[in-house]
Amino acid sequence: MHMRARTWIIIGAVAVAAGMAYGLKEFNRGLAEVEAMDAVESVDASALLAAFVADDQAARAKYVGATEQAIRVLGVISTIEPGTDSAPTNVRLDAGDPMASVVCEFAADQLPAEWKVGDQVALKGICQGYTGEGMMPGDVILQRCVAAEQ
């Protein structure tokens, strides 16, 4: 009896420790690495912007998704803007509209050094939606971007 109680105490202690370890790991979990994610859609920058302008809700369902997902976007770089203060670098892809583009946020260590304005590139990132509202022009926003295979 004494032996059985001790066994249960040990099992209980191990279970509590495992639960705490899992909880701590989950609490401290960082954002998913986009590089390791499969792209659920592959789309041209112009088509991506056009989809959001035509039907924001339908485009969000397809490209943003209910939970975080990566998409692959192809386009020509129109500008590369280093972020002010602590903001990430913005790579703008030409989307055929002078007032709007597809803006891709890159961490400093993810932006390929050889990329320059005018390059045709492929990238992968988390699409967060279209910022335009009413009369305000907007952009399609991709975050945590990485270079993708052409």
Partner: peptide
Amino acid sequence: DKVTSVWDATTGAIEFAVLIKAFTFE
């Protein structure tokens, strides 16, 4: 870092639009 805002300095009218999913946490 992707907030859109338009300010008309003549009339004072100002607007902001913020994508909620574009907030990043540690």
